[in-house]
Design a protein around this nucleic acid. Sequence first.
DNA 1: TTCCTTGCAAACGATTTGCATTGGA
DNA 2: TCCAATGCAAATCGTTTGCAAGGAA
Lengths: 149, 149
Amino acid sequence: MKTHVQTEIHEAVKRSLADHDVRYTTGRQQVVNSLQTASGPQSAAELFETANTVPLSSIYRSLTVLDEAGVLRKHHDADGLARYELAEWLAGHHNHAVCGECGTVEDIELTPGQEEALHAMVSTLTRTTDWELSGHTLEVEGRCSACRT
Amino acid sequence: MKTHVQTEIHEAVKRSLADHDVRYTTGRQQVVNSLQTASGPQSAAELFETANTVPLSSIYRSLTVLDEAGVLRKHHDADGLARYELAEWLAGHHNHAVCGECGTVEDIELTPGQEEALHAMVSTLTRTTDWELSGHTLEVEGRCSACRT
DNA sequence: TTCCTTGCAAACGATTTGCATTGGA
DNA sequence: TCCAATGCAAATCGTTTGCAAGGAA
């Protein structure tokens, strides 16, 4: 697993979309650009402000297509609002710290050793459940620096 | 942190609600009962089916009140649907397996040794972030037994 | 009595979709 | 050319809320 440099990302996305028989149009590129430069997961409304030449409905459709192609990772904040970020294979694996007070989500990185330990942990679960397990995320909760003050 | 036995739970919930100056009505008790016996986080619609003497809007209101009183834990599935479960201090700590295909969430328990390892991991994070960390959940993703067939 | 709570229906808001038009391979 | 993609408006659907009736302290 490795992180792609910015210029590589569009190529990688284009390939992924091609595999799904969809085009990498300028509207979709704008969405990827915004997500790439954003400091955290973005909602459709936020992306609409960033790239306001693209109508909201198109942004929703772009997000859906990109998500289905495995380019994005979708999650929801405390209010249920959908937020997207580039998928792990594009932006790298990371875990999340969720603020119980304001709902902010911040990316957290573990040491390779810790990630390895997590991975081993998940492996043992394969034996105790009848699921086919593929990935993991450690979600840590607490209060972010802003809410602590 | 300890798990309460079933009969204790209602007492604990009643006390929590009293602290927030709200009553523990029969409608709210039904919601807690359903959550208690469920195998995973429940949506308002699912709770409505289980306790269909209580109208949907009341279930929503009960969930909101119980959540604000710290009795419940709220999260969202892949489709953004809100799902609730009893808070950890009532039902005990556990982790989640999320099916990437159907969105089902199932509770997973780790061994005490694994939980200890996770806890240690979170402790080290306290030193590398400026957050005040309080809890953690390991989210494992994969395909549930039903979707594998 | 005095509030809190409930039921019902109407209102909301994020997201989706129908359909005619546009645009890229 | 041909079909995917777009824009706009209308439709969906989970969730919230206003208001009058019911209930517990």
